[in-house]
Amino acid sequence: MGDRDSIGSGPAPLDASKLKVTLSETLKPLQPIETLRFGQSFSDHMIVANYDPETGWSAPEVKPHGPITLDPACSCFQYGGNVFEGMKAYLGPDGKARLFRPDMNMRRLERSCGRLALPPIDGDVVLELIKCLVDLERRWIPKESGYSLYLRPTVIATRPGLGVIASDHAMLYILASPTGPYFQVLKPVSLLAVSDNVRAWPGGTGGHKIAGNYSPGFLPQQAATAKGYDQILWLFGDDRRITEAGAMNFFVVVKRDDGDGVDLITAPLDGTILPGVTRASCLALAGDPEFQKESSLRLHPREMVYTMSDLAKWSSEGKLLEALAIGTAVIIGPCNRIGHEGKDIVLPGAGMGPVGTALRKKILDIQEGRTEWKGWGVVCP
């Protein structure tokens, strides 16, 4: 009966061992790396599986990258039942492809699906499928440092009908896109702090990676660009709490009063902040004695509520040393000024500071296989 293992066993779980492979008859030529732009080019193949409430998950299939066919009444179009992940495969000096802490992405994918009441999905099985796709598309991974194969596992609600209820149908698809640095030149970005629009709110979905979190930010982003700023710094509440920068986590480096190094500060995971993989990695590295020794930095990672008033005070006292935008696509990028209510907070220096530089180098070394670190780099067979 469909993908049921036996009569009465319930809907079939997603099963990577049932992967079917339909290869493209003609492979695309590889692009010169200097022409790669984030998310604009795709590899030859993708993986697709469908969930039906009666039979469960279909056998996943590798197939040529191309359009999918959906009923126009599907829940994904009508009510935004869409979640996704962003992760990268890097090619190491040993020729092996590596993923960076993919277990964190998979747990987040499971939580996101749960938050939108999508059919349950096993992230460990999704990871096995991702590894299969990476292995198949290995030729698409650029060898140069800073380049990678971006992976976008996505789950969408496919229940056909206009009833305002949770979707009991779903589609999983996994795309692969060769990409270069998110910013073509790693130069500091400027931020416009805004509070009239908010990215997330308590009890909402800001702590999950769902499609509906992103499009409401496009209009404020256009307004920020028109005023000469690169990205938005999202504020929340009457006290103007700092949350995120654009679609990235946000950190600041602040000199300590006791002279014992610096604080690396970011907002706590209170449900309004996306639990980013790079965010967690920066916090873990900052608190690690081995990393502090090799980087000659004395760091104190802190997750705490802080506000625009705090930023202004630290800046006026000469304590605000760095501001960093952090995420899978950009890894770590420096910020040079923050606009708020007609005034700019200007960060010292003309580029990345020592903390951002050390964190970025270490994470890239792990991602690109130049160093092993606590099992964070996962080799794709």
Score class of each variant (00 low, 15 high):
Cys282Gln: 04
Arg138Thr: 13
Thr357Phe: 03
Pro93Tyr: 02
Val252Thr: 15
Leu175Tyr: 14
Lys343Asn: 15
Cys335Ala: 13
Met171Ser: 14
Gly204Gln: 02
Arg298Ile: 07
Gly246Asn: 07
Leu109Ile: 02
His208Pro: 03
Asp365Glu: 15
Met106Ser: 03
Thr278Ser: 04
Ser177Gln: 09
Phe84Ala: 06
Gly276Glu: 06
Gln292Phe: 01
Leu133Phe: 06
Leu109Thr: 03
Ala223His: 13
Tyr173Met: 09
Gly114Ala: 12
Gln222Lys: 12
Ser43His: 03
Val126Gln: 04
Ala329Met: 10
Phe100Ser: 00
Thr328His: 13
Ile121Met: 03
Gln40Phe: 05
Gly356Ser: 06
Pro268Cys: 01
Ala193Met: 08
Leu136Gly: 07
Lys343Cys: 06
Leu269Ala: 01
Leu269Gly: 03
Trp57Glu: 08
Pro32Val: 05
Leu36His: 04
Gly207Met: 07
Gly276Trp: 06
Lys143Arg: 15
Leu347Met: 15
Arg101Pro: 00
Ala247Thr: 15
Glu54Ser: 10
Lys143Gln: 14
Gln222Ile: 14
Lys361Arg: 15
Asp230Leu: 09
Thr272Gln: 14
Pro381Ile: 02
Gln221Trp: 15
Val198His: 12
Gly206Tyr: 12
Met304Tyr: 00
Val252Gln: 11
Gly123Asn: 02
Phe100Tyr: 13
Cys74Phe: 00
Pro102Ile: 05
Pro102Gly: 01
Pro160Thr: 05
Ala12Phe: 12
Val355Ser: 09
Ala49Cys: 08
Val378Gly: 01
Tyr182Thr: 05
Gly203Val: 07
Gly377Val: 00
Pro216Ser: 11
Leu364Ile: 08
Thr22Gln: 10
Thr179Tyr: 04
Ser295His: 05
Gly123His: 02
Ala350Arg: 08
Ile326Arg: 01
Thr26Lys: 14
Gln231Leu: 12
Ala267Asp: 01
Gln292Trp: 02
Gly114Glu: 13
Ala323Cys: 15
Ser315Cys: 12
Pro216Gln: 09
Gly212Pro: 09
Gly10Trp: 04
Ser24Trp: 02
Met248Leu: 13
Ile47Ala: 06
Asn50Phe: 09
Phe183Val: 10
Arg298Glu: 13
Leu186Asp: 11
Asn82His: 14
Gly212Asn: 08
Asp310Phe: 07
Pro275Phe: 03
Met352Ser: 10
Arg111Phe: 04
Glu341Gly: 00
Tyr79Trp: 03
Val277Thr: 14
Arg138Leu: 12
Leu36Gly: 05
Cys74His: 04
Tyr51Phe: 15
Thr357Asp: 13
